[in-house]
């Protein structure tokens, strides 16, 4: 990204808490990042790291009576703070300006309405087009996502489509109002690899055509390597590292990122039958977080300082940030 481009979305100090039977738990803690037009930002982390809560907090899709944002949380979009926006203001943003696709395409489509009806709904709310024009636009969108027999599919129900086709409908719905931002939450996790390849290629083509900013949430580092420009690594509700994708894979600075990269089997590397490097232990419970670094208990480079004081997320190099007292030297690892 050149320095002139202004970010389309700025997330600052976003903290989301949930009220549970065991007390209040902070699911994401002080998350900050910028998203630029035309880039794909990957958000990586294991289950429970707060990837999905981050995206749902931006979209304000979390149940309001069970969750709240801490004082000082800002999601800046077009000069507005979405954290404090009214529900009416959010309705203008959701679907039209910021769209989202979910992991499970079957449960996120309504089974009792046709594909066409569901595509039409968004257009009805967010555009002034008449009925015929909306239908034309919807079919255009289905063609754009390479849906075979788009006209016929328009009148079909979700159960008549395969998983890959359903996900393409979700993408068509998300893109029909030409959003500035597309949030894709594990869009290919439930799909087979050959279908995943189709969806990833499709998202990439669309990004180039429409300059949409994409926030891609995934746990699959292979998908990140293939599609992202920048990466944010999350661990136990914290951003632990952010970097351009090449730099992250070449020289991860946070020990967690390094360990994560090493623990995936590599294809075509003839490491057959060797033991994989693992990360010992488990992610700490959010109810019982250590006072120091959240990764300390599993970290190979830990000392007393790490147990006592949690490191800040600091600028480490141009466009790189890391949350570690002893960031790894910038050498090539995990190739």
């Amino acid at each position: 990204m050149s320095t002139e481009t202004k970010p389309v979305l700025q997330v600052e100090h976003l903290s989301t808490c949930f009220k549970t039977d065991q007390g209040v738990v902070t699911a994401i803690d002080d998350v900050s990042f910028d998203l630029y037009p035309g880039e794909t930002l990957g958000i990586v982390g294991e289950s429970g790291s707060g990837k999905t809560v981050t995206s749902k907090s931006i979209m304000r899709l979390l149940p309001e009576h069970l969750s709240f944002q801490k004082e000082g949380s800002v999601v800046r979009f077009e000069g507005k703070n979405l954290v404090t926006a009214t529900e009416d203001e959010m309705r203008e943003v959701r679907g039209a300006r910021v769209a989202m696709i979910f992991q499970e395409p079957m449960t996120s489509l309504n089974p009792v309405f046709t594909i066409g009806w569901q595509l039409d709904e968004a257009l009805k709310y967010h555009t002034d087009l008449d009925r015929a024009a909306r239908k034309q636009r919807a079919i255009e969108m289905l063609k754009l996502v390479e849906m075979p027999n788009a006209e016929r599919r328009f009148d079909e129900y979700p159960h008549q489509l395969s998983g890959g086709m359903r996900q393409r409908v979700m993408i068509a719905m998300a893109l029909c109002c030409e959003p500035d931002i597309l949030i894709a939450d594990e869009p290919t996790t439930a799909l087979d690899v050959t279908i995943q390849a189709q969806i990833l290629r499709l998202m990439d083509d669309l990004k180039h055509k429409t300059n949409t900013a994409i926030m891609l949430i995934t746990h699959d580092l292979g998908v990140v390597a293939q599609t992202c420009d920048r990466v944010l690594v999350m661990y136990a509700g914290r951003v632990v590292e952010s970097a351009p994708v090449h730099e992250l894979f070449d020289a991860p600075r946070h020990p967690y990122t390094k360990a994560l990269l090493q623990s995936i089997p590599k294809s075509g590397r003839r490491e057959h039958g060797k033991r994989l490097p693992t990360i010992a232990g488990l992610v700490p419970s959010l109810f019982d977080l250590p006072p120091g670094c959240r990764f300390a208990a599993r970290c190979a480079y830990r000392d007393e300082h790490c147990d006592a004081v949690e490191p800040e997320l600091v600028d480490d190099a141009p466009r790189r940030r890391v949350r570690c007292h002893y960031p790894l030297p910038a050498e090539e690892v995990a190739r």
């Binding site: 390849a197 189709q198 292979g222 090449h246 294809s267």
Partner: peptide, 24 residues
């Protein structure tokens, strides 16, 4: 070959056009 071609890569340096199979 198609499965190998559709499999995500190890490193952004290896980026390539993923193999996409036509048809169902």
């Amino acid at each position: 070959r198609a499965l190998l071609g559709a499999n995500p890569i190890n490193h952004p340096r290896e980026r390539r056009e993923l193999t996409v199979l036509e048809g169902d």
